[in-house]
Design a protein around this nucleic acid. Structure first.
Lengths: 108, 108
DNA sequence: AATCTATATTCGAATATTAGAATATTCGAT
DNA sequence: ATCGAATATTCTAATATTCGAATATAGATT
């Protein structure tokens, strides 16, 4: 495992966090596991699209799933992810307060 | 500023970290500022491409730059970014040890 | 076994990102 | 003012991501 490969895997994790809906999923899973239905109801997103995001997060090891009857419960697989997100959010808020311009989703 | 907008800006920060070269830049800037030349020599990357990455990181508030004569020194704008990266790296290493499959840059 | 409910997968078009190539800018020295 | 060194920008083709639409699967219920 070269350092370059580690950077690539690390970038993969960041990439998985780099989506507003997935970040919202993470905040919903912050304190407790949730079913897909619960998430669908809590968010403004289609069930299919939510399932796509969850599949991606599963494959990257961000969340884990367990089935219970018809429902599938998702939870964060590692609380450090939440910590990392919190830190980035702090940075964001500090930058906003200091008047930095961070708008725009397209490449600047 | 709605919660949705915050998620988008947050995703923007994650997106900016979601590239192996940019993560490598961050590790090079971990302890001290560096000039573009120093970074170009330390990494396997063209000067033009490095400059592109630095511009993106500047615009997202990840790094800041100061000129001194011909050289431009870059440094991390907020140590919390480094902390967040460290946490994600820890998660990555833990996942690797537990045998998770996280390979592949393409969409899984 | 037929059916219903919850969830997942596949496909495709629109959009975004990446890195190389070429070129431009900025500053210091002569 | 011109030149050279350091850095930045623009353009572009290749590649990757996103989300809706349609469809598929797994388990419960009758």
């Amino acid at each position: 495992m070269t350092e370059q490969q580690l950077f690539e895997l690390h970038a993969n994790i960041c990439q998985t966090l780099a989506n507003p809906k997935r970040l919202e999923i993470i905040t919903h899973l912050r304190d407790s596991e949730k079913t897909v239905s619960e998430l669908t109801e809590a968010m403004q997103i289609s069930q299919a699209n939510l399932s796509q995001h969850l599949a991606l997060m599963r494959q990257k090891g961000i969340v884990t799933a367990r089935r219970e009857g018809l429902n599938i419960y998702y939870r964060m697989s590692n609380p450090k992810i939440i910590k990392a997100c919190d830190l980035m959010r702090e940075v964001l808020l500090e930058n906003l307060e200091s008047g930095a311009v961070l708008v725009g989703t397209a490449r600047p």
